[in-house]
Design a protein around this nucleic acid. Structure first.
Lengths: 100, 100
DNA sequence: TTATCATTTGGTTATTGTGCCAAATACTCA
DNA sequence: TGAGTATTTGGCACAATAACCAAATGATAA
């Protein structure tokens, strides 16, 4: 069970994948839109999306020449405010250390 | 920003670290308790806890010979029900595929 | 101070993840 | 069918991670 959960978290634990996941919260996007936005190879983006798909975070939908991805589990994002909280408290702790 | 968030997620994205984090939700634990429970070397456990500490998920408290760790950000766990949902829907999808 | 216990750190090796390129596939339109 | 566009796949080089062992550190008790 912990293995399965860790896999899902691992899928999210990459800056590009995390960013794409948050983008998908605003609605579906085609692969090409990501490629334009991120400065990376088509294949790199495609592989990242495949990772998200494999664990069930997103799903794809081929329409014409393009493939559209959409977020399957919006609750994923509820978590982010907590993660942001972790980061903020870390930043504050570091700042406090520097002041000493 | 996405880098920072990804780091926090990456810290959680390991079965042992995830398990330890959930254990810490029930109160602080000393390193030795984890070593007894997980079948792994002291050093392995210690390093995992260091990863969690480094990103600010847990904090440590040395008391006498022992070091106690505790969860700094309980909200981390709110997320897990969502992750479990992801897994469940994956399992169902796979089952549906097999039936065909 | 020395012995001992609890934990961390350093080093090594095996495994996994990342990103690019090139080639393959899938679809559409002429 | 053939050309062109969108995406995926395979392969490779390189970086990062994980787990173990051995050695170092820190605290306590004898």
């Amino acid at each position: 069970m912990y293995d399965a959960k860790a896999k899902v978290l691992k899928a999210l634990a990459h800056p590009t994948r995390l960013w794409m996941t948050e983008q998908l919260a605003n609605g579906e996007r085609c692969v090409c839109e990501f490629v334009d936005a991120v400065d990376a190879d088509f294949s790199t983006i495609s592989k990242h999306l495949a990772v998200l798909k494999q664990v069930g975070i997103v799903e794809d939908d081929k329409r014409g020449k393009q493939v559209f991805y959409k977020l399957k589990v919006p609750c994923i994002l509820n978590f982010m405010s907590c993660v942001e909280g972790v980061i903020e408290s870390q930043v504050n702790a570091q700042a406090a250390l520097l002041k000493k």
